[in-house]
Design a protein around this nucleic acid. Structure first.
Lengths: 208, 208
DNA sequence: TGGTTTATGTCAGCCATGTTGACTTAATTG
DNA sequence: CAATTAAGTCAACATGGCTGACATAAACCA
């Protein structure tokens, strides 16, 4: 799939420190005119890419903003949300799975996971085939909170998908998947295909 | 530390908002469908929305992950990246604009902005029409770093846009814009349409 | 003119959440 | 039984959010 052919030139662009005339320093200078970018007149693709980067920033900022407000009332933060989400959606996963998903250290995870367990949002259960494993399940309260946190995100996503148009979902999915590190894509696929079944007990072969 | 009482209060609010599936009591259960967010359109399967939420999480995680390694070599963090990006792309903006874009406090901004200024990546210039304003500009060094940070993101975005297909850009843009808080969209549009030129004077009413 | 508001900067401290390193415990495995 | 593995824990530290209080200079206004 699309290699870095097209993209390569942007990498090279890194080294170009183009001497843009942008400053306009000095007291009374009015900033009036352009001196925009590299001096190529046509609508540069870089501008487009910058726009997508910024849209992504704003979109994600607001996407996470909704649950953050709710979480504050529980004394939780975004980290708790992430943990609760994955425990709820992929219940029965191991601590190691969670570490792998979140890309954080077990010490960081431990802090929030402990709070979620102590306050009755998440339960642990020893693995049946390997009793060293602690399989994680949401409690009823945990599921309720997870859904409460998901609700505004669902509204947002549904509206955004609708705004994208009916046929855009596949393209959107392809876009998002391609944004993920190539080496992590199989893992992500495996995670997402793991149903939130409370029925898993000794399931560990998710192919790490 | 909100008690469970509060938790249930919010759970009830969930029901007020959205008829999301609320079954699955007592550990058993199945995932239902039928969340209609926004009220229009066909019911959006819950599982699909969860998938998009997770894809967004992974995509953004990796999108922001790339520049982090570079930033570490400069002793900077993600906060510096955000500031540098917006100063570079929308140079001449005021401190207040940046606060508005980033949604952080001036004390938080001050910490990273000061470092960027002290180390010669960003320059300030008093506003010409209002000399209280400090307009922010990237230095040559700042531009070089900004481009270096952007480069891997460009690669990623370019490949992802290609993976999405040629006609998908408009839909993607629509999706991302719709993900932004409705009340912030004019502001975002205004920001994004602000060329990285010094076109602003005493512009304060960019429409909050 | 002088008082008020505004834009920005700063000090001081707290909180959430990431990090590394070292160590323990329990269970599996060879 | 020894070694490995999954998980938990303690301690220390860094980043980057936050609030509150206060300072300064410029603009604005009556």
């Amino acid at each position: 799939m699309a290699d870095i052919n097209q993209a390569e030139k942007y990498v090279n662009m890194t080294d170009l420190n183009e001497p843009l005339s942008r400053g306009r320093k000095g007291g009374g200078a009015k900033r009036g005119e352009g001196a925009t970018a590299g001096g190529k007149g046509s609508p540069m693709p870089e501008a487009k890419l910058h726009e997508f980067a910024e849209l992504l920033f704003f979109a994600y900022r607001d996407f996470t903003g909704d649950p953050d407000a709710i979480l504050k009332d529980f004394g939780f933060g975004r980290a708790h949300h992430r943990v609760l989400h994955f425990v709820n959606r992929h219940s029965g996963l191991r601590v190691a799975d969670l570490l792998d998903i979140l890309n954080i250290t077990k010490q960081s995870l431990s802090r929030v996971l402990k709070q979620l367990i102590d306050q009755g949002f998440v339960e642990q259960q020893a693995g049946s085939s390997d009793r060293r494993e602690r399989l994680l399940y949401p409690t009823e309260r945990g599921r309720a909170l997870a859904e409460r946190l998901a609700a505004p995100q669902f509204v947002r996503l549904t509206n955004a998908l609708e705004a994208a148009g009916p046929g855009a979902e596949a393209a959107l999915r392809a876009f998002l998947e391609a944004m993920i590190n190539a080496e992590d894509r199989p893992k992500v696929s495996s995670i997402m295909s793991t149903m939130p079944a409370e029925t898993r007990q000794g399931d560990k072969g998710d192919g790490t």
